[in-house]
Amino acid sequence: MSGDLQFDSQGRLHHFLTTEGLDRDTILQILDTAESFVSVGEREIKKVPLLRGKTVVNLFFESSTRTRTTFEIAAKRLSADVINVDTRVSSTTKGETLLDTIRNLEAMHTDLFVVRHSRSGAAYLVAQHVPSHVRIINAGDGSHAHPTQGMLDMFTIRRYKGSFENLKVAIVGDILHSRVARSQIHALTTLGVPEVRVIAPKTLLPTAVERLGVHSYTDMRAGLDDIDVVIMLRLQRERMESARIPSEQEYFNLYGLTTDKLRLAKKDAIVMHPGPMNRGLEIDSSVADGPQSVILPQVTNGIAVRMAVMAIIMGGKAQEEMPAKRPARRHA
């Protein structure tokens, strides 16, 4: 695929923009490194000096307290200096473009930008236009990707299920608008999960979703059959206004995860949700707080996984001068 600029000329991870195109070894390296960071989080002093003297800017054009907090903690545990910029209320509302904002912050010798933006492709745009020593982590761009969330979900699945080779995983809900679902799908298929299902009414399924390597179901009961991992997605309440679903009640009846529906999955199936949850809309409280739920450990793992991603992309290569890569161009 042309234009994949998250790798440097030697194929090493330079930015972290999407789980698409990562090879299995890279994903496993991230998961293994994250395991080591989990023990750091359990120590008296939870810091390691890896990113001492580095500046990390959390640049959030879309608010998300939780994601921003886990990135902030991750960067601080790596001893980096962290600055949070909430641009939703600052420069961009004054007509400054996304790139202007980046250039201004870059002038403050930033080493890593963690970027969250409401538009698909925003992190790619930024990665294309920063000098080669600056790294970018995509903390969610539109409906495109949220790769660190995808990785922490893989981390959680591996912790509970051991390996990926024999799993059946179902992702339920608003697949169409979900950057989390896309990042999970690419990671799961690369890790060799033999069956990934997406479950939603057709109004919330993207066209040609099967081309991502998944099976689609409109009937949740059929889709949950024999499943090892159930991932519930958040449903934005605006979806009713765009005529994608008729009512909350109908949605909950058909696609809300209840103990009753969960019984159709394997007995030891785990339930995940990237949060924040709408209890009573996509998930019943009895499931969210039930014995099969691993929703809270997901949050804890988020810090170790983000530390791993930061450590891997920030290490080495400092003395190399890499020309800024532009998208590869096809020859006629």
């Binding site: 492709g121 495109h144 950057r179 066209t207 040609a208 979703v209």
Partner: peptide
């Protein structure tokens, strides 16, 4: 275009 690439990139499609 509403199709494979729009689905991959999470971009809203024109059917």
């Amino acid at each position: 275009h509403e199709g494979e690439v729009g689905t991959r990139l999470g971009l809203p499609g024109i059917p």
